Simulated assay, not measured.
Amino acid sequence: MNELTTRTITGLLLIALTLFATVQGGMIFAVFVALIATGVYWEWWRMVQGWNVLWKVGGFLFALIPAIALLWVRDRSVAGLELVIWIYIVTWATDIGAYAAGRNIGGPKLAPRVSPNKTWAGLIGGILAAGFLGALWADYAGLNATYFWIGAPFGAAAQLGDLFESWMKRRAGVKDSGNLLPGHGGLFDRVDGLLVVAFLTGLLVVAEAL
């Protein structure tokens, strides 16, 4: 089985498991999110061995706060299920759009010292995909009009999360954050952008409730 096939199968299984836990909500979703957050922190902890202790504290918060945001959005907000799916769509669209544009268009590198494979075309492609698909879902699901417009900037934020993790891996001297997911690397590799989008969405939900 080649790497692309392995990556595709793993990705589809992850999506199916994520959507199942999200639709179920309650304790199933809480346990699922807790396991992901724990895995992310474990990988973070391994990468920052020998770094300042503040990195270990920061990693705990970096994994915990988005997890709390996801749980809050899912179970405490109006249209919680639809909004969590919006978070997924924006994040996944960003990844797919960036990959497709970067691979097919190429061009100038975005941050060659941090992540040599990322391009400006990929950045723009990810932003456009997040904006378009995020708006489609927001309209279909009847979400607040705000979510029709903010897919694009949140897609840009997701890519900043990706770049941050790439910088951490380069400093730590590792290719992937872990090896739990065949074809993908570690959990942190897969949810780096999602952590940022979940956090920002949680802030928006809290602001709307004030």
Rank of each mutant, 00 (worst) to 15 (best):
E43A: 12
G25M: 07
I68Q: 00
V73Q: 10
L70E: 12
A79N: 10
F60N: 04
T22A: 13
D139Q: 11
A63H: 06
Y99H: 07
W120G: 02
A130C: 08
I65H: 07
G59I: 11
G122I: 09
G122Y: 12
F20Y: 14
M27W: 06
T38K: 02
G25V: 06
L123A: 13
F32S: 08
P116N: 15
T94W: 10
N117H: 01
I127P: 01
F132M: 09
V73A: 13
G102M: 15
W72I: 13
Y88D: 01
Y140D: 00
A145Q: 00
I96T: 09
I85R: 04
A138M: 03
Y88H: 02
T146A: 14
L123K: 07
Y88M: 09
L54Q: 11
L17M: 09
Q24G: 00
I124G: 07
Y99S: 06
S77I: 08
E43Y: 08
L19Y: 12
L81M: 11
A145M: 02
W72T: 13
R103D: 02
L19F: 14
N104D: 09
A101C: 13
W137N: 04
A69M: 09
G25C: 07
A69N: 02
A130E: 03
K56S: 05
L128Y: 01
A100D: 05
G25A: 10
A145F: 01
G107E: 08
I68N: 00
A98C: 09
T22C: 12
G59S: 13
A79L: 01
W44M: 06
V23Y: 10
W137Y: 05
G134I: 02
Q49S: 15
K109Y: 03
R74Y: 13
A121V: 11
Q49G: 13
W120M: 04
A111W: 11
F60Y: 11
G142I: 05
G131D: 05
A141N: 08
G131P: 01
W120D: 02
A79D: 05
A130I: 04
T91F: 03
K118A: 07
L110C: 02
V84S: 03
G107Y: 07
A30D: 14
F32P: 01
V84L: 09
R76L: 12
W42Y: 15
I28D: 03
V48P: 00
L35W: 05
N117E: 00
A111Y: 04
L35Q: 05
F32W: 11
F20W: 13
L83H: 03
A34F: 06
I89P: 01
L70G: 08
V57H: 08
T91H: 03
W92H: 06
G106Q: 06
F32V: 05
F62V: 10
Y147C: 02
V40W: 06
I89C: 07
A145V: 01
L123S: 08
A30F: 14
F132S: 06
A135K: 12
Y140H: 03
A100Q: 09
L71I: 10
G131W: 09
W120Q: 02
V114T: 13
A141T: 04
I36C: 10
A129Q: 08
Y99R: 06
G126P: 00
